[in-house]
Every structure is written in C-alpha cells, then in structure tokens.
Design a protein around this nucleic acid. Structure first.
Lengths: 101, 101
DNA sequence: GGCGTCGTTCGATAGTTGTCGAACAACGGT
DNA sequence: ACCGTTGTTCGACAACTATCGAACGACGCC
C-alpha cells in the first residue's frame, strides 16, 4: 500500500490550510509538535478510531506528516523542516495555543 | 445591519484557516495584499457576484477583512496589522505565490 | 422620479467533509 | 495457532459549503 506522502511543493496551499482548519487535526499537529514522533493511538481527542484514522490520512495527504510502521503500531511525525522551509511562520503562527477567550 | 466584523481574538484559528483554505478567497486576499483597499467588484475570479459576495462575507466574518460603504460600492481591505500581530508569519507564508508546479 | 450600477440575500442544488460502527488486516506475544 | 492490540477501510448518514440565478435594496446621476 502506498503511503501517499506527497511532495510538499506539489500540494496546493489551500490543501495545507484546509488540513489545519479542523480542531481535531490541529490538536494532533500540536501534540506532534510538542511530543515528536508518536503512535496514532496517542491522539485521543474524543473521536472514534475510525475518525482519527481519517484525520491522520488528511494530514498525511496534505504533506503535513509522515508515517512509518513500527511493530504493531504506526509512528507519525510532523514534517516540520519542510513546512518551515516552504511556509516560514505558518506552523509557528498556528501552533501557539491562543487564550480561550 | 451589523457588518459582522468580529474581534480577531474571538475568532477560532480554525475559522481563520478555513477562510484562507479556498482558492477564490485566497485570490481575493492576495489581491487585497497587493492592491490595498478595493471595491468588491474588482475581484473577478470567474464566479458569479452572488458567490463573490459569499466569499467576502466568509472573509469578513473570519476577521480577515473590513468593509466600508463608499457611494454605490463597498470598499474591502485586509486587516493586515491585526493579523500580523496575532498570527505573525501566517499571511506572509500564505501570500507568496508558489511556483505552479 | 426613473434608470443603471453595485452589492446582498434567498432558495435550491450538488459536492465535500466529519462522524460513526462494523468489518477487516497486520503484528507480537503466549 | 490463537488472541489481543493497533490501525485502516467500508458503507452510511448528517452537516456544511460552494455555486448559481433571481429577487431585492441602496446609491448616484440624468
């Protein structure tokens, strides 16, 4: 099965933004930025595993993450270097948790 | 009628990102960044005026633009200062036109 | 006052997306 | 070989969104 991890330059900006424009996915990205490479199962944000898998797929296909198999789990990591290079400031602007109100 | 121009800090990041995650709206934002305050009618990107009005509303309600009446037209402008302050790097990262391929 | 321009709003529609449970697949341990 | 764990995939369904034409409203001008 192809991992579908596209070249970031081939992904339209709108797709990158759309991938980030979801609360669950943004939490995943934040967790990845803080905790580094993590297994899929570590992202427990109140959605079913089917939904979580869906969101991880969106992130992967938008070029935001890479996934590799590791035994029984799959490790996900942020493609931070590439993102910072192609869209300097994007992640920083989005990652900093805003005050709730 | 209230113009619905929210305080940027009250708009969830996901809404800001969602507003930018559309090709037509991104073109509008780019045009605004380049040309400054412009009338609605100047954004002719192959959609009907109804659709254009819809996109401008999305941008306005996401806190990205401000609109003011001026005679028979309405002038739209980017809230760049506020955006750059709250999300430094966001606009810059998104505004720079990528090479098509 | 009447007309044309500019823009918004309404209702409809087609497409996309987030969500779930259930079924399936892969792997490690016992 | 069997299980339990971990993820993915498959419908299905509800909610949202982009799009349009048509109707409407506001303004300036003749």
């Amino acid at each position: 099965m192809e991992p579908h991890e596209p070249d970031l330059t081939a992904v339209p900006v709108t797709s990158v933004l759309a991938a980030l424009a979801d609360d669950v996915r943004l939490q995943i990205v934040r967790a990845l930025a803080e905790g580094g490479e993590s297994p899929c199962g570590s992202f427990d944000f109140g959605v079913s595993k089917a939904t979580r898998s869906h969101h991880l797929k969106v992130l992967r296909e938008a070029g935001l993450t890479r996934t590799r198999a590791a035994g029984t789990s799959r490790l996900v990591r942020l493609r931070r270097d590439e993102l910072d290079k192609l869209y300097p400031g994007l992640l920083d602007a989005v990652l900093t948790q805003r005050p709730p109100a």
